[in-house]
Write a protein that binds this DNA or RNA. Structure first.
Lengths: 202, 202
DNA sequence: GCCGGAACTGTACTTTGGTGCAATGGTGGA
DNA sequence: TCCACCATTGCACCAAAGTACAGTTCCGGC
């Protein structure tokens, strides 16, 4: 599963890199370079039209389009779906959200923002409210900011060397953070950490 | 993250056990026994009403309700949402799907079946058709039976030594299977394998 | 000023993970 | 029968992960 971020200028937001360290960033003219299974993330800047953004050919087999909108609203989301995208979310969404979107999309789901779902389904507001607060990142409150960054990268299957390069610190420091993380969360190794971060059982 | 399956009789379907080997099965009278963070899966049998199934109190903090319907239709899904459930799917859904649902729900998402989404959003049928065939079960068909067993255990964060003991083979054999798995699926290490098996991006 | 915590780094060490090469035995198809 | 694939294992080897011990700097609170 690969990830390509497509924008006017091939410059990635920090959150994108954090969500998918191995991702590629392309200018809109370079869309053709994206080959193989994966997600193509199209950034929609303010005032731009969805129809001008997405390739008219639609996604290739095994590929999925997601629109990252600077100013998302329900109208845009609907346009994205109609244009062949499998999802639409905020350009500045947190790394966890991006990974979540990728997960759903890559498994045949459609990612629909909660605001739209709420309007569209009606009468379900109370559940939605409720889950707003119970975003129990029990792990993230226990960790320091730096440790959280390391933990997220580990959860994405990055090696210590990659993490070190990404955060511009030594591999030794990465290990130090990890040892601290394992101790705080009562885990054994990076694989358990990955499951914990990704919200999987055990 | 724990899982409780609640049915008239405390008898689990094989798919449930496969999805969550550590899960508990409860009769409806025993719902109160479910404590701590996790997912409560309520089986809705044919002809039963959603409102009679779910506790009126709604889910506790860190807990999520999902309805497993023997005969799901769009009307039932809407009722489930209104009754405080975070998702609704088929009672006989494949283990991978159940894990998928759990993942989305536990991360604050709502699980909505594709048929409902399709009706509700309209005009997006073509994307939905397309993604029907390209599911990501691709890994299980590429692996031999033994390799699949090893892969599942690795995905659950077991060490080679543990897997060896579990399958009554030598640690060396476990490594051999893993090397073969990595080669077949084009992966680098057990962490990437875990993400792949658990249906996560990358 | 002192103290604790965080971030950072080094040397050295043990353990685990993963590969290469080699070998055995079974099974099922051409 | 021969061949391909699977499951199994041993030995050796290298790389990566993780730990132990020690040390630095910076920052904010008491």
């Amino acid at each position: 599963m690969q990830h390509w971020f497509i924008d006017r200028q091939p410059i990635a937001l920090p959150t994108w890199c954090e969500a998918f360290p191995e991702s590629h960033v392309l200018s809109r003219a370079q869309v053709g370079l994206a080959s193989g299974a994966g997600v193509l993330w199209f950034r929609l800047r303010s005032g731009e039209l969805v129809d001008d953004l997405l390739p008219t050919a639609g996604p290739a087999v095994g590929q999925y389009f997601v629109v990252l909108s600077d100013e998302p609203d329900e109208e845009i989301v609907l346009q994205c779906m109609a244009a062949g995208a499998a999802g639409c979310c905020n350009s500045h969404a947190a790394p966890e959200v991006l990974r979540q979107v990728a997960l759903v999309v890559a498994n045949g789901g459609l990612w629909v923002g909660q605001s739209l779902l709420r309007r569209v389904m009606g009468g379900t507001a109370r559940i939605i409210e409720q889950r707003q607060q119970s975003r129990s990142d029990d792990w993230s409150v226990l960790l320091s900011e730096r440790e959280t960054q390391v933990a997220r990268l580990v959860a994405g299957a990055s090696s210590n060397k990659e993490i070190a390069r990404q955060l511009s610190i030594s591999e030794r420091t990465v290990k130090a953070h990890l040892t601290s993380i394992f101790e705080k969360l009562g885990l054994r190794d990076r694989l358990q950490l990955s499951l914990r971060i990704n919200g999987l059982p055990l």
